[in-house]
Design a protein around this nucleic acid. Sequence first.
DNA 1: GCGCAGAAATGACGGGGGTCAACTTCCCCG
DNA 2: CGGGGAAGTTGACCCCCGTCATTTCTGCGC
Lengths: 251, 251
Amino acid sequence: MTDCSPTPISLAKLRLACGNCSLHELCLPVGIGLDDVDRLDRIVKRRRPSSRGDHVFRLGDEFRAVYAIRAGSVKTYTTTEGGGEQVTGFHLPGELIGLDAIHTGTHPSSAKVLETTSLCEIPFDHLEELSAVIPSLGRQLIRIMSREIHSDDELLTLLGKKSAEERLAALLISLSNRLQQRGFSAREFHLSMSRNDIGNYLGLAVETVSRLFTRFQQLGLVTANNKHIRIERLEDLRALATGSSSCQPRG
Amino acid sequence: MTDCSPTPISLAKLRLACGNCSLHELCLPVGIGLDDVDRLDRIVKRRRPSSRGDHVFRLGDEFRAVYAIRAGSVKTYTTTEGGGEQVTGFHLPGELIGLDAIHTGTHPSSAKVLETTSLCEIPFDHLEELSAVIPSLGRQLIRIMSREIHSDDELLTLLGKKSAEERLAALLISLSNRLQQRGFSAREFHLSMSRNDIGNYLGLAVETVSRLFTRFQQLGLVTANNKHIRIERLEDLRALATGSSSCQPRG
DNA sequence: GCGCAGAAATGACGGGGGTCAACTTCCCCG
DNA sequence: CGGGGAAGTTGACCCCCGTCATTTCTGCGC
C-alpha cells in the first residue's frame, strides 16, 4: 500500500494536466486557489484520444459540455441547406470549442477531429455551478468568449476585404502565432487540414489555394511539401497578411 | 455623469426601463427576483440620447463598460493599418456592444451612432460584482456572448460563400427578423446606415450595392426609396438569402 | 428658392478568381 | 508491392464584381 493513497489528486499531476490545455486559461491565471483547481479538475472528464474524422459533436446535438483541446486539432463547421459545408474555424491545443451552443442549448455547428486528438470534456452544468462558487472562474470564461468574439470579427475583415493572397498568408501567420504561443515552432509545422478545408474556410476555391501555395513557394516565402510547411520569410509573409505588402493597391 | 434621480426607483418604471432594451435579455428572463432587478438597475447609467456620428467608444479606448441600445442603431467597425474601415456589425435596440473588449481591457473596435440613439451604460466592474452575487446574471451574460459568437459564425458563411445578391438579401432578412422580434414591422423599415456602410459590411463595392437595390426592385422583391425599404416578397427574398433560390448553381 | 457637397445611381471596362477538365501524386489497404 | 480512389496540381476559359468616371439625387445651410 502506497503512502499517497489517501490523496486522490497530487498537485504535480494537476499541473501536468492543466499545463498545456485550455485549463491553462480557465484555471491557472490569477485568483484561483489550489483547492479551486482541485474542484475544477474533478468535473473535467479526460477522454481517450479521438482519431481523424471522429466527431466531437454534431450540428443539432444537445449541448452538454464544452471541450478543451489538449493535443491535436479540430475543425468546426456548419452545414447549409444545400448540404454544403462552411468551415468556421481550426482549433489548436489550448482552445475551447462548443461555446456557440450555450445560447440555444443545441449545437449550431459540428466539430471534427483533424488528426489524433486528446480532448477534455467539461460538463457545462457543473461548470456553471462551480462558477457560482468561484466567481473568477466565470469571469475567466467570459474573457475567453470575449476573445472569441474579437477573433471572429478579425476573420470577418479577412473575408470581407482581403485578396486571396492576403487570406492564405493571414491563415499561415495565425497558425504560426498560435503554435508559437503553445511552445511549438513558429516557422515549421504540419497542416492537419486539407486544401479543401483551407479553401472552404478562407472562402476560396481549392484550385486557388493550390496555386497560391505554388506562388508563395516561387516567391521564396514558404516551402510546402504536401502538409509540411516551413515559413522561410516570416516577416514578408506577415506583411502580405496585413495588407502592408509592397504591391499594395493604389500605392 | 448626468444621473439626477435621487428618488428610489419604482417597479413600474423598472419594467418600462427594461422592457425594450438589452436588460430585457440581461435581467428579465428566468430566475431573477425583483430585488435583483432593482440592484441591476442601480448600476445602469442611462445616457442622454446621442446623435448621428457620435462615438460610443473608439478603438483603443480603455474598457470600462458595455452598452445596451435602448432605441436607435449603432455600427461597430475596426480600422486597419491602411486607414481603411471594416464594419463588423449593425446593432439594433436590445443588443449589447463592447463585449469584444472584455478580454484585453481595451476596445478593439469603434462604435458609431447611426441615428439619434439612446444607450444604457453598464459599468463592467459593477456587472462582474453583481454577477458574483446573482449567478443567473452571469449565466445570462454568457448566453448572450454565446449567441454573439454564433451569429458571427453565420456571418462568416455569408462572406465566405455567398454571392453579392445573396449577401444583400441576407442582410435585409436579418434586419427584418431582428426588427420584428423587437415589435417593429418586418416588411417596412428605415435603413439608418449608408450604402457605403452596407457595402463595407458585406464585402462589396458601393456600386454593387446600388446595382443590387436596383435589380431587387426590378424583380419586384423590394421597394427602395432612398433609405426607406419595403419588402414586397419576403419569402422570395428569404429564399434568395439562404441560397435556395430558383437560380441555384448546377441545379 | 439657390447652390453646394456628399450620397447614390448608372455605364464602361478589366482583372481576380471561380469553374471545368485533365493529369499527377499521395495514401490506404489488401 | 501494387491497385484504386481521394487529394492535390496545373491549365484554359470566362463571368462576376471591383474600379474608374460621369451623372443624378438628396439634404442642408443661407
